[in-house]
């Protein structure tokens, strides 16, 4: 695979991994985090520093990135997850920017705003593909379990969820930890591909872009989120001739979705083996078998 396509694949998969986690949070509990770029940064810097300063091997660097992002997620979640949704969104926005500011403010430790160069390039096409599939499967499994039902209950009616003994706060903590862990993983994979990171890569625009992906894809559809993540990663390539037009096109797409498909592009549609089989049957001429159980 040429460098160009590997790069495209890595950026796309990084988007998908963050989106899968953010989808779990937004689609699951109704909470929106506007600070996920900060957690990408935590993952990128954790693994970047562990592998360059302490010479940890890449897999341990990734693990460290996931674990540390989750820990920060739990620490941030503890005071914020009890807030009303609006305040949670605001608080996470502040957290994202604070993380970025902190990285810039510690030049001796992180390289500051100059950035951290020389991160070993370890993220291959296969590694990133494998971890993307694993991330999607984990999120899907979570949503298909009793924890997924609890999350949906919380999103729909927190009071009623409490009345059936759902520990709302604990469930939110688990989900936010997973969301942040996946963001951290994505950040680390990115760092080990581009080999150089600086705080400006993880700014507020990036966080907003990630939230937009989930909303465009549809709050009831992981398939939609993944598709939108791919779209947003590929869009700059399609629009390379006019980088300035990128945000214009984003805004236009978001507007059109809000107006014509308020439930997101995919609504509640979820790709499954059954739906794939149905599509396959349609494509192959619809030879239907009756009565087969």
């Amino acid at each position: 695979m040429s460098d160009y396509y590997t790069g495209l694949l890595v950026f796309t998969c990084v988007n998908i991994i963050v989106t899968a986690g953010l989808y779990l949070l937004i689609g699951g509990t109704g909470l929106v985090s506007f600070g996920q770029a900060g957690f990408l940064a935590i993952g990128a810097y954790t693994s970047g520093l562990l592998t360059t300063r302490l010479n940890w091997p890449f897999p341990l660097g990734l693990t460290g990135a996931i674990v540390f992002s989750m820990l920060v997620g739990v620490a941030i979640g503890y005071p914020t997850l009890k807030l009303r949704r609006e305040y949670f969104a605001l608080a996470t926005m502040g957290v994202g920017e604070a993380i970025r500011a902190l990285i810039s403010a510690l030049p001796n430790f992180t390289g500051g705003s100059v950035g951290l160069p020389g991160i070993p390039q370890k993220t291959t096409a296969w590694v990133v593909l494998l971890l993307t599939v694993v991330s999607i499967v984990l999120v899907r499994n979570y949503l298909k379990s009793k924890f997924g039902r609890n999350a949906l209950a919380i999103k729909t009616d927190e009071l009623a969820a409490k009345a059936i003994a759902v520990n709302v706060f604990a469930q939110k903590q688990i989900i936010f930890a997973i969301t942040c862990g996946l963001s951290g993983l994505a950040g680390a994979l990115l760092a080990h591909y581009i080999t150089y990171i600086d705080p400006s890569m993880f700014d507020w625009n990036r966080s907003a872009e990630l939230v937009t992906i989930v909303f465009v894809g549809g709050l009831g559809s992981l398939t939609g989120g993944v598709t939108a993540a791919i779209g947003v990663a590929l869009l700059p390539e399609v629009l390379r001739f006019a980088n300035e037009a990128r945000f214009l096109v984003y805004s236009l797409v978001v507007l059109l979705v809000i107006i014509y498909r308020p439930g997101g592009l995919f609504g509640n549609y979820e790709l499954s083996w059954q739906s794939l089989a149905r599509i396959w049957r349609k494509l192959t001429g619809g030879a239907r078998k009756e009565g087969a159980a």
């Binding site: 009793k146 039902r149 949906l152 209950a153 009616d157 009071l159 009623a160 059936i164 759902v166």
Partner: peptide, 17 residues
Amino acid sequence: RLFQGMSVLDNVRTALH
């Protein structure tokens, strides 16, 4: 206060967590 959008079965199943 039902879980709107969930099926009848899932409304009840949720309570079994």
